[in-house]
Structures are given as C-alpha cells and as structure tokens.
C-alpha cells in the first residue's frame, strides 16, 4: 500500500442478523464508510456468517431484511467481502447461494487480512 492511499478499513461482523441490533449497526458503519469512498473490506466471522443465509424473510418479525441489504453491497462498491470458512461450515451455510459473493478464509488468512488493513472495526 502506497503512502498516498486512503486508509483502508476492515469491518468485522460477528453477530447473527436478528438476535440484536449489532448486525444492522455494523453494516450501517460499513455502508456509511463506503458512501464516503473509504476503501472498505467486510469480514463475516463466527455467528456473523448467519447473515449470509439465503431467503431471509424478516418481514415476519417486522425488522429490516439484512439479507436484502447485503445484496446492495456492490452498489456501494464494497466488493471485497470475506467469510470465516470454518464458521460457514459449522452452520452448513451454502455460500454459493449467499446474498453476496464472498471469499473464504482460514484463521491465518483472517489474521493476514487484519494485518493488511490500516484500521479494524470489530462488532
């Protein structure tokens, strides 16, 4: 990364989509940063991978649909999206059907990702 680059930010999302307001809050931070053209990467880790389940229908509980919000990430130019491979496997999540295209990482891969970014924002 050259000195002229903007600071790169990694947002780490570790919360299930509807168990608390933290999932939504972490995505709002990511979208706000992206709207201001900060280079942003997103990592779904631990329970955060549950946000990647296809066919969420949160209208049934009167809450905004996180799955559908995730499909808008490319419009925010958030293209670098990563997922904790072990967590996805643990929950049996079919990443090929996820609302957003992700790159799977193992533990050392996640460590490297964090090291590559200037700032890490964990939720």
């Amino acid at each position: 990364m050259g000195a002229v680059d903007k600071k790169s930010v990694l947002v780490v999302v570790r919360r299930s989509p509807y168990g608390s307001s933290l999932a939504r809050a972490s995505l709002d931070v990511a979208l706000a940063a992206a709207a201001f053209e900060q280079p942003l990467r997103l990592l779904f880790m631990g329970d955060g991978v549950l946000q990647l389940l296809a066919k969420q229908e949160s209208e049934a509980i009167g809450v905004k649909n996180i799955g559908r919000l995730l499909t808008s990430l490319p419009l925010y130019d958030i293209e670098r999206v990563y997922v904790d491979a072990a967590a996805a496997t643990r929950y049996g999540i079919d990443l090929s059907n996820a609302p957003v295209t992700t790159q799977a990482l193992d533990g050392p891969g996640i460590h490297q990702l964090m090291t590559d970014c200037d700032h890490v924002l964990g939720f």
Partner: peptide, 11 residues
Amino acid sequence: REYDASPAMRP
C-alpha cells in the same frame, strides 16, 4: 423494494 433500504447517493 429490492434492498429494503433507501439508497445513499453513491448506490
């Protein structure tokens, strides 16, 4: 309808 959110300017 598609994204369940109002867009910011960039999107």
